[in-house]
Write a protein that binds this DNA or RNA. Structure first.
Length: 586
RNA sequence: GCAGCCAUAGUCUAACGGAUAGAACACAGGACUCCGACUCCUGCAAUGUGGGUUCGAUUCCCGCUGGCUGCACCA
């Protein structure tokens, strides 16, 4: 089935044509004056200039044609040239009925060509996830779900920071603590232990110590740099330690991302790109786009249309090493080779925009990514109530797990305060609801904007929040459950609306296919959020003035139930695109 | 210094160039006491500033003010 706006658009477009005007003027939109109409068409005003006719004349002519359509109960041409439309109840009821019978809820979920790689982790091994990783994970995961829902194949890659000086630092710190380990014995030729010589908490403690030490102790820093080079050259013992570090870290990261309901398809890291670097750099030199400058190898990326100067992009440091750009470019080489995707979506803090512009340009210029779409989504900062980047009370960077815990505790207290739930269920529910609070609080804002983390507001079940949506879903589920218990069946058949509230709910529900599609096209989870909020509001209004269980007209009641089922499916699909789910009770 | 991004009720946030700028929180009233209480209704209240383009500008262009950010070998 086709989207409602599209279906209606076809009618208005052919009406424009029939009245002697260009069909493309017939585009219609949901009304922004719901007091006047449900849908509107502004094409008459756009066409006035073209045809040298007053807009109202065009509108009148088109309206005359539209009167004949059985899809509208009211067609009005209004000054200066708006065409105001209301749907006929029969058509609306029929459309909603079809929507509810469609397994895809009216969405085009057919499989699309190509694969999109989403790079949205950015976690570093040996360092705990902190709130800097939160937005990337939440937004990236949602975008992945949204794309999948619309039939796009995706590959989500965590793209670990698993290479570079931090590794040398850890290795050297470990050596100073446990010099007798076989990894540090160059004469050792046997099998290294399977067990890592540290736990995740030790690892998390080792790194900051080593990092601090390197700032004071020049000798230590040098040894770490040397160790890094040795590791990169394949030092046997160091490689073994490095693998332990990865294993221990990844296990922990998976757990933490899991708590956020974030799952990656690939756990690749910067290290995976290393083998591609020499050939890649050489190819760019050979083709003439890369040249030497101050000892480094650079590529010019300035374009004529630039309003500012772009310095050349360094693809090999003067010491021969790799930098951020090198590593990201080599990663693209690998991804092209292994997956040949049709598009890339990178999520990172918007402050990194320049970097992405640079390396995208090099990737194009060097032909590393000849055609695939390269997109960067820069997100804003999550701030504290003071408007500055969110910190712990002591001023440090907040670990992600603490943030989650804190949100869950807040939720748990609320549940206990008004609930009859036992300890176990309360705890479980608090976890589910807390996640919705956190994610919805983030996703309901446009990604590029900063937002304030306000735990009280996010966990409130009033207002535009995750818990409010969940509450609404729970309420729908409860009615459906009750209905089934009472009548022992859930047969239903949706009919034309019999009240304004019902009608409004139906109109909200009709917009789902379009919303889902646009959210994917714009990579914009916040559009799903505002849509769901609108549906929840419509439902609650309907709920308030319609007592569903006490309805005496069985046909009407069945129609209500059908509508509830549809609302529930749409809302559950919707929140799953945001990356959370609804509990059975709250 | 150069460049980019942002600016909407007290707070937070939305709006392909379209009508009276839409919500939320808070605040002031009121309804329901129910199918699950956190629901519903009414009210108050906003486009930083000065120009321009347009029949029409929160939206596009230019200036100003204010805030944030980035400017080659760190990721």
């Amino acid at each position: 089935m086709s989207e409602l706006l599209k279906t209606l658009g076809e009618v208005t477009e052919s009406a424009f044509e029939e009245a002697g005007f260009d069909a493309s003027l017939g585009r219609i939109t949901v009304s922004n004056r719901p007091d006047l109409c449900e849908f509107q068409c502004n094409g008459a005003m756009a066409g006035a200039k073209k045809y040298h006719v007053a807009p109202i004349e065009i509108a009148n002519k088109v309206a005359d044609v539209l009167q004949k359509s059985d899809k509208f109960s009211s067609v009005e041409a209004v000054m200066p040239g708006f065409i105001n439309l209301k749907l006929s109840s029969e058509f609306l009821g029929q459309y909603v009925k079809e929507l509810s019978e469609d397994e895809n809820l009216g969405c085009d979920r057919s499989e699309k060509e190509g694969t999109i790689i989403i790079d949205y982790g950015g976690a570093n091994v040996a360092k705990p996830l902190h709130i800097g990783h939160l937005r990337s994970a939440i937004i990236g995961e949602s975008i992945k779900h949204i794309l999948n829902y619309n039939g796009y194949k995706t590959i989500g890659d965590v793209h670990l920071g698993d290479w570079g000086l931090q590794m040398g630092l850890i290795i050297m710190e470990l050596k100073s603590r446990q010099p007798d380990l076989p990894y540090f014995d160059d004469t050792f030729t046997g099998e290294y232990p399977k067990e890592a010589p540290f736990t995740i908490s030790e690892l998390e403690e080792i790194y900051p110590k080593a990092s601090a030490k390197s700032k004071e102790d020049e000798e230590f820093k040098k040894s770490a740099q040397l160790a890094t080079v040795e590791l990169q050259n394949g030092h046997r013992g160091y490689t073994a330690i490095w693998k332990h570090i990865i294993d221990v870290s990844v296990t922990d990261l998976k757990k933490n991302y899991g708590n956020l309901a974030v799952e990656f398809d690939l756990w690749k890291g910067e290290s995976d790109a290393q083998p591609y670097i020499p050939d890649m750099v050489q190819a760019m030199i050979d083709s003439g786009i890369a040249y030497e400058s101050d000892g480094a190898i650079v590529v010019d990326i300035a374009e004529e249309t630039d309003s500012k100067e772009f310095p050349p992009c360094i693809i090999r440091k003067s010491d021969g090493g790799a930098n951020y750009e090198t590593s990201d470019l080599a990663t693209l080489v690998e991804r092209e080779k292994l997956y040949s995707p049709s598009g890339y979506v990178y999520l990172a803090d918007k402050r990194q925009e320049l970097h992405y512009t640079q390396f995208f340009r090099v990737a194009r210029k060097a032909g590393i990514v000849p055609t695939a779409d390269l997109k960067f989504i820069g997100f804003g900062t999550m701030n504290g109530k003071d408007g500055k980047p969110f910190k712990t009370r002591s001023g440090g960077v907040m670990r992600l797990e603490y943030l989650l815990d804190e949100t869950k505790q807040t939720m748990l207290e609320k549940i206990k305060a008004n609930g009859t739930m036992d300890e176990n269920e309360a705890d479980k529910t608090a976890g589910i609801v807390a996640l919705s609070a956190l994610k919805y609080g983030d996703l309901s804002n446009q990604a590029s904007k900063d937002y304030v983390f306000d735990i009280e507001r996010f966990t409130s079940s009033e207002g535009n929040t995750g818990p409010y949506l969940l509450y609404t879903i729970v309420r729908i589920k409860s009615i459906l459950r009750k209905y089934e218990e009472t009548f022992g069946k859930t047969d239903c058949e949706i009919m034309a609306p019999s009240s304004d509230g019902q009608r409004a709910l139906m109109l909200s529900l009709c917009a789902w296919p379009e919303t889902a599609r646009v959210a994917a096209e714009d990579l914009a989870p916040h559009k799903i959020c505002s849509y769901l909020y609108d549906v929840a509001n419509s439902f609650n209004r309907f709920y308030h003035d319609t007592n569903i269980m006490k309805e005496e007209d069985a046909k009407k009641q069945q129609s209500y139930i059908g509508l509830l089922k549809l609302a529930r499916r749409i809302m559950e699909d919707g929140i799953s695109l945001l990356g959370f789910e609804a509990p059975e009770r709250m």
